[in-house]
């Protein structure tokens, strides 16, 4: 469904991601691990072209459902973003518009892709949040992002991402800003979302534990390159690259 071929991303002529090949099948969870600065965030952001200022794809292709994303015009790209490919960020509160209530956020997210009434948007948001196990959805809908706790905001962010029935969800460190107990819940939630909606998940984390728990297929990024790529079991038990080996041995032993 998503196929990245020979991708190269630069920030002001400085190469951050180089020669990356990977693919995500429908309904699959692909996890990318790597230390900070390894280019994993850049990789997922380049899929929907939301790189920070100065960043751009300089080589390679990103193929998604028959479209070549790197050559799409802004307008065509807008139709893909939030619709077929949704995104979850590390800091849900910072990535939500601070002056919009959750209610308004739901409306805005649906409204850009199809005609919809405010009341309808509210109902959709409410049922999605109830499905995701959020209590008192009406109260959440009337709140502003800064009024929510981190874990709650991240679950709301998941609900907002799912609102248009995406085929692929990109998750950039979705658990890293949460404390450990909430992290666990978040992982379960994302797994449940995959099982229920059948959407694929491209997950990026520095936490090998999270990736090991969730992913079907794993990639390891090191200094802008994908040094390891394969099924989770292969990568975990028969790492090809020395860096992966060191990374695996660095996982703290915690009983899940």
């Amino acid at each position: 469904m998503l196929k990245i071929h020979n991708l190269e991303v630069c920030y002001d002529k400085h190469i951050t991601v180089q020669n990356v090949n990977l693919s995500v099948q429908a309904g699959e969870i692909v996890g990318i691990v790597g230390e900070s600065g390894s280019g994993k965030s850049t990789l997922v952001r380049s899929v929907v072209d939301i790189l920070p200022k100065g960043g751009c794809v300089t080589n390679g292709c990103i193929h998604f459902c028959g479209k070549e994303l790197t050559t799409l015009k802004d307008k065509q790209m807008n139709a893909v973003r939030g619709k077929d490919i949704a995104m979850i960020f590390q800091h849900p509160q910072l990535t939500m518009e601070p002056l919009m209530t959750i209610d308004q956020a739901f409306y805005e997210c649906i409204h850009v892709h199809r005609k919809c009434e405010r009341r309808e948007a509210r109902e959709i948001g409410k049922s999605l949040m109830t499905d995701l196990g959020l209590e008192k959805p009406d109260r959440i809908l009337n709140s502003y992002p800064f009024e929510l706790s981190g874990g709650m905001a991240q679950r709301v962010a998941v609900a907002l991402a799912l609102v248009n029935g995406p085929k692929l969800v990109l998750a950039d460190e979705p658990t890293s800003a949460l404390d450990v107990t909430v992290q666990r819940k978040m992982i379960d939630l994302l797994l449940r979302v995959r099982d229920k909606t059948g959407c694929a998940l491209l997950l990026v984390s520095h936490n090998f534990g999270v990736i090991a728990k969730m992913a079907d297929r794993v990639g390891v990024m090191y200094r802008g390159k994908l040094v390891e790529w394969g099924l989770k079991e292969e990568v975990l038990y028969r790492p090809q690259h020395g860096y992966t080996d060191r990374l695996i041995r660095a996982i703290p032993k915690i009983q899940w």
Binding site: R45, I50, R81, M87, L94, T95, E97, P98, C109, L160
Partner: peptide, 10 residues
């Protein structure tokens, strides 16, 4: 960050 968040919504 919220700008990237909004753009990612389409």
């Amino acid at each position: 960050d919220y700008v990237a968040g909004l753009i990612a919504k389409g």
